[in-house]
Computed example of a mutant assay.
Amino acid sequence: MEATALDLGLRGAVAGLFLMIMVVTLGRVRPLDTIKWLGVAMAASGALYAIVTAPFVPKATVWWIMPVLGANPVLVWLWARASFDDDFVVRRWHGVLWLAVVSVWFSVIYTWTTWPMFAKAGVRSMSILAIILSLSAAVQTVRTWKTDLVAGRRRLRLAVLILSLLIVVLLSVPELNSISAKSFGMSGSLATAVGLLAIAALAGWGLFHPPPAIPAVAAMAATTASENADRAAPIKAADGGRDATASLLLRRLDNLMTVERVYRQEGLTIGGLAAKLDLPEYRLRQAINEGLGYRNFNAFLNRYRIDEAKAALSDPGQRDVAVLTIAMDAGFQSIGPFNRAFKAESGLTPTEFRRDALARSAAIALENDEKFRNRPIPLKIG
């Protein structure tokens, strides 16, 4: 009875935390982007899961709600993609996948007594899918971790994601291997309650106590001033304001990118760029993110690479140069990432951009030629 009381108490705390997250997000957080909507959906499903899987809850309630909760791995996967990939967009097929998982779980529940073999196969397939989605989200986290410039997202969301994926896997693996939480000296219900409370606590911490944001321009200027008082110089601020004081670090960074064109270097990482500037990596992350407004290091590099590619594609003298050659000269390692980044920035493929740019150049040249031929010829008297 003591374990049951503890279990119920933990689940009440979990439901309360998740409901508070939902209320605060919907009532105070603006704008409500994809990440926040997915967070609300996950909070709602977490609260429901904590309630319907508690001891003494009528089984009829579980049968009706569990198919929806069974699709939680899809929500976790979408949330991870949206949180760690700034270019990710929710598509229709993502909704179709969620509905398909819900449908399979309904089929499992309603065929459990009539076709038990079919139902067990359905449970096993959904467990495998949950593990695949969890591993995919984990790979996404690791793959984009080093290029992430948002300090709070690197520190907190990674922890929340890892713990969420751990719970998903722990709930899925037992279905595949018949592992019981009792093997570890605790009931499965209590173990689930503890895991859910840890997730809810981390999610609440991330929402109510975000890390303080210190403008990088001011922070770098203050640090530089303490090291060398005469190193700071006035340049244009990242937010468009003029006559703002920025650090020598930002000026040196701008010189590296625009004059030395280090973005052309193959495999350039933020660690390598920090080494060129002879400063800690975290300071460079802060400067690029908070001072220049970039959330991802690759997006920062691609700005310069795409600008160079646009200039080359617009040059009539390079009309016969292959697009792949231009892309690799600008620093891209293959044509696929170049095409995606170029279209995301300009709305056109490189080939379409070149066609339009060369057509405009030809039209301007023709217009100038017409003006030259039609200009009045001055008369010579004498």
Rank of each mutant, 00 (worst) to 15 (best):
A41V: 02
A41T: 02
A44D: 02
G46L: 02
G46R: 00
A47Y: 01
Y49W: 14
Y49S: 11
A50F: 01
A50Y: 01
I51H: 04
V52H: 03
A54K: 03
A54P: 04
P55I: 03
F56M: 06
P58R: 08
P58A: 10
P58V: 06
P58D: 09
T61Y: 11
V62A: 14
V62C: 07
W63Y: 14
I65Q: 05
I65Y: 03
I65A: 09
V68K: 00
L69W: 00
G70K: 00
N72K: 03
N72G: 05
N72W: 04
P73S: 01
P73W: 00
V76K: 00
V76G: 01
W77R: 03
L78Y: 02
L78D: 01
W79V: 00
W79Y: 04
A80Q: 05
A80L: 06
A80S: 12
A80G: 13
A82L: 08
F84R: 01
F84L: 06
D86W: 06
F88K: 09
F88G: 08
V89E: 14
V90H: 12
V90S: 11
R91W: 09
R91D: 12
W93A: 13
H94I: 11
G95H: 06
G95Q: 05
L97P: 04
W98K: 05
W98F: 14
W98L: 10
V101W: 03
V104H: 03
V108L: 07
I109C: 14
Y110C: 13
T111F: 12
T111Q: 13
W112G: 10
T113Q: 15
T114A: 13
W115E: 11
W115D: 08
P116R: 07
M117D: 12
F118I: 11
F118T: 09
F118G: 05
A119T: 07
A121C: 08
A121V: 08
G122W: 01
G122L: 02
R124C: 10
S125H: 03
S125R: 06
M126K: 01
M126Y: 02
S127C: 04
A130Q: 02
S134W: 05
L135C: 13
S136V: 11
S136I: 10
A137P: 11
A138P: 03
A138W: 14
A138C: 11
V142G: 08
R143S: 12
R143W: 12
L149N: 13
